[in-house]
Design a protein around this nucleic acid. Structure first.
Length: 557
RNA sequence: UGGGAUGUAGCCAAGCGGCAAGGCACGGGACUUUGACUCCCGCAUCCGCAGGUUCGAAUCCUGCCGUCCCAGCCA
């Protein structure tokens, strides 16, 4: 983590250098979510950047809920957000803050701005204000209330606070420059009237500060040195600096913007994610196909894999969309190293070992993880009748196929080498049973005579197998960039095959008591986790986190 | 002549005047009791384009082109 570099680190090191803006200071960042929705992988990037940047320089990172708009925010999200950040493994110590806690301070600062002639109360309606703001290419016009005296402004502002005016009747505006090329500087609103209960301050206030006024003050009060945010705030930086410059505070935090994360085959906007949930297009915020942290968690993503991902995608100011395959790669890397291997048959077909005595059962020791010998072994039972993957048998093998087909030898992982003798089909010609004979000399799967057996397949003893439901997930959208397709509603681009539910799957008995959040590698298939929503007693549900890579390019098996 | 950013491989991304890192994806090979993992090899004579400065430019200068963001009393 120390060797990663980006332009933010460069900027911080300049600031810390002798003569720099923050020479001798402790680097202090913050993650400032608005409690109006669940966190997603895009937030994870911001969380990682803020926490790891502070850590890199021996600094601190605060968690601050940016709750300045009572109409959109809810306490229910606060807990969820805290949980998700903790789950990722970050710790804000005792530095949990709420923007609303600074309400009085921000209000006092607003009065100070009024006294300095930097703000005025405007009676214009929202529509009138918009009409007078000008356009991208034309300057705006001064409001007729722009030159009210300090005393009148102060009086009006206090009466706004006292609740004398209805919502929308008046706003406090910064007095900057109605002709600025930067629209954010055309006398932006600083305070608006909202007669609504706030999730923390209740009915104490009926005026609430706007982000542009509140955020820089919150940063400054907390002693934030580097306020890291996304690119769309670049245009707001002059305003941020303006507020900070005129506020009566020693600290002058520096805002630095970076590009937010986009991922292929998914959407990241809160609005769209919310719509997917409310329309029932997914199974809630924690649907394993959702890019929310809760969705990823339920999918089987580990905190480590997400942090590695965020670390490796880098930080820059270029609008970018990262290939989801890279996120999957990071998950496989983590799970390959840490997930125990088991055998599970998703689409079972019966295999009968003709020369194996009926009723006989023997057991084999199977390694739990070849990448971690210290994880030891487990016992798997073997008998005459087994389940194997339907895909692992082909009456007429495609080119390059080296699994089970008549006459071919294949190894049953950990057990014996068997030779396929044929199959039994039903009236419709469907294979219902595969037949084979085993070579007793190959116990454990070795070939004492040194002969090569190319194929190795997984299996489960029919008599000992445990039934399970397996959910196969794929990408939520069938196109790389659902947001970019303007001629079609993004909901039409949902991948119809993003979920396939398989019942009657057969897994080895060691999985009988598996509980979330355990992850396993089902040999030769992929990584699966126990679904973290409570299943009916005795029922096992596995979610596929990500499939194993498969370099077999032959025809369908 | 609105303002602010940004263009390095299919996708991320280093690079900061000395002769194009790395990862993902992809292709080939080795190994293999997972067609996984691992390991090799390949993958930008070129850095949006055009000029210029320089012994030397992706890095500096000029011009052009493309893309993104901004007209909430949202954040």
């Amino acid at each position: 983590m120390d060797e990663t570099r980006n332009f933010i680190h460069d900027a911080i090191e300049d600031d810390l250098a002798p003569g720099g803006r923050f020479e001798g200071r402790t680097v202090h960042t913050r993650f400032p979510p608005e409690p109006n929705g669940y966190l997603h992988i895009g937030h994870a990037k911001a969380i990682c950047i803020n926490f790891t940047t502070a850590e890199k320089y021996g600094g601190l990172c605060n968690l601050r809920f940016d709750d300045t708009n009572p109409t959109k925010e809810d306490v229910e999200y606060v807990d969820a957000i805290e949980q998700d950040i903790r789950w990722l493994g970050f710790d804000w110590g005792d530095r949990l803050f709420f923007g609303s806690d600074y309400a009085q301070f921000i209000y006092d600062t607003a009065e100070a701005f009024i006294r300095k002639g930097l703000a005025y109360v405007d009676d214009l309606s929202a529509d009138e204000m918009r009409a007078m703001r000008g356009t991208l290419t034309e300057p705006g016009k001064d409001s007729p209330y722009r030159n009210r005296g300090v005393a009148e402004n102060l009086d009006l502002f206090r009466r706004m606070k006292a609740g004398e005016f209805e919502a929308g009747a008046k706003v406090l505006r910064a007095r900057i420059d109605m002709a600025s090329g930067n629209l954010n500087l055309r006398d932006p609103a600083m305070y608006r009237i909202k007669k609504e209960s706030h999730h923390r301050t209740g009915d104490e206030w009926c005026i609430y500060p706007m982000y542009d006024f509140a955020h820089p003050l919150q940063d400054a009060v907390e002693g934030i040195t580097h306020s890291l945010c996304s690119l769309e705030y670049e245009d707001h930086r002059p305003l941020y600096d303006w507020v900070v410059a005129h506020a009566d505070l020693a600290d002058k935090p520096r805002q630095i913007e970076f590009a937010r994360l986009n991922l292929t085959n998914t959407v990241m906007s809160k609005r769209k994610l919310l719509e997917l949930v409310t329309r029932g297009l997914v199974d809630g915020w924690d649907d394993p196909r959702m890019p929310t942290l809760r969705g990823l968690r339920r999918r089987g993503y580990t905190p480590a894999s997400i942090r590695t991902f965020c670390d490796r995608i880098g930080v820059s100011k270029v609008y970018s969309t990262v290939d989801s395959a890279f996120l999957e790669h990071c998950l496989r890397e983590d799970l390959n190293a840490n997930a125990r291997r088991v055998m599970g048959v998703l689409r079972p077909v019966r295999l009968v070992v003709e020369n194996y005595p009926e009723g006989r059962v023997e057991t084999f020791e199977a390694e739990n993880n070849p990448e971690r010998p210290e994880d030891g072994t487990r016992t798997v039972p073997f008998a005459r009748e087994l389940w194997i993957e339907a895909d692992d048998f082909a009456e007429e093998p495609p080119k390059g196929y080296f699994r089970m087909f008549p006459g071919n030898e294949v190894r049953l992982k950990h057990a014996y080498v068997v030779r396929c003798t044929g199959c039994v089909k039903d009236a419709d010609g469907r294979v219902v049973e595969v037949r084979c004979t085993y070579d007793p000399a190959t116990r454990g799967g070795d070939t004492p005579d040194g002969r090569k057996v190319k194929g190795t397949i997984h299996w489960v003893s029919a008599a000992h197998a445990v039934d399970a439901e397996v959910r196969l997930y794929d990408s939520l959208f069938s196109v790389p960039d659902p947001d970019a397709t303007e001629d079609r509603d993004y909901k039409e681009l949902l991948n119809p095959d993003s979920l396939e539910v398989l019942t009657g799957c057969k897994v080895e008995p060691s999985l009988a008591d598996a509980v979330a959040p355990a992850s396993y590698q089902f040999l030769r298939i992929g990584y699966f986790c126990v679904d973290n929503r409570p299943a009916a007693p005795g029922r096992l549900v596995f979610n596929r986190s990500v499939a194993l890579k498969d370099s077999f390019k032959g025809g369908k098996g």
